[in-house]
């Protein structure tokens, strides 16, 4: 059957089988490779994409479910260079092997779109579905926190009071 999706802003119509998974269609049929296979069961989050702005595991979504909807992969965030979240992730050396990076980045982006002032706990929760075996998450959390701060500053918003973790000392 034919489905029509808007992938990173470009509408495309493509014939799929009812059993085709979204991850395979995005990677193998539409040629966008940033969502990765890590487990095939929704455990690891490496295949994360945004579907109409919401985080989903593309290995758990049938391609037909995406019909008429908008898919965003990490490539869309950096059309004019890395966005603010990405810049902070780079600056903080937040990733090591980088295999989980597209998924984590999208999860962080989605968090900041719906919550401009997340607590550390909320940041950790937002990326808790994205497994990273290398980093221990500390630098990722730092980067997202800094990105949130700079995004708020740009929007002229105040920080809400909270107490957080102590983080890594150097």
């Amino acid at each position: 059957m034919n489905i029509t999706v808007k992938l990173n802003g470009i509408a495309q119509t493509i014939a799929v089988e009812p059993s085709d998974l979204l991850i395979d269609v995005i990677r193998d049929r539409l040629g966008v490779k940033s969502p990765k296979y890590g487990c095939g069961k929704g455990d690891c989050g490496a295949c994360t994409v945004l579907l109409d702005g919401d985080v989903v595991r593309s290995c758990l979504v049938l391609a037909v479910e995406a019909d008429g909807r908008e898919i965003t992969t990490v490539e869309a965030l950096s059309m004019e260079g890395p966005n603010d979240v990405q810049r902070e992730l780079i600056r903080n050396n937040a990733f090591q092997c980088g295999f989980c990076a597209p998924g984590v980045t999208l999860a962080a982006e989605e968090l900041l779109r719906r919550n401009a002032d997340p607590t550390e706990e909320e940041i950790r929760e937002a990326v808790a579905g994205n497994l990273c075996r290398c980093t221990g998450y500390q630098q990722i959390v730092e980067a997202v926190r800094t990105a949130a701060r700079s995004r708020r500053k740009k929007a002229g918003r105040k920080r809400r009071p909270r107490s957080g973790r102590k983080g890594v000392k150097s």
């Binding site: 990490v74 890395p82 780079i90 050396n93 980088g98 990076a101 597209p102």
Partner: peptide, 17 residues
């Protein structure tokens, strides 16, 4: 900062698959 930091965060880094 890592010289390969950006390619990993923007989805440009290619792995075998």
């Amino acid at each position: 900062p890592r010289i390969d930091g950006e390619e990993r965060v923007v989805g440009a880094a290619q792995y075998v698959d």
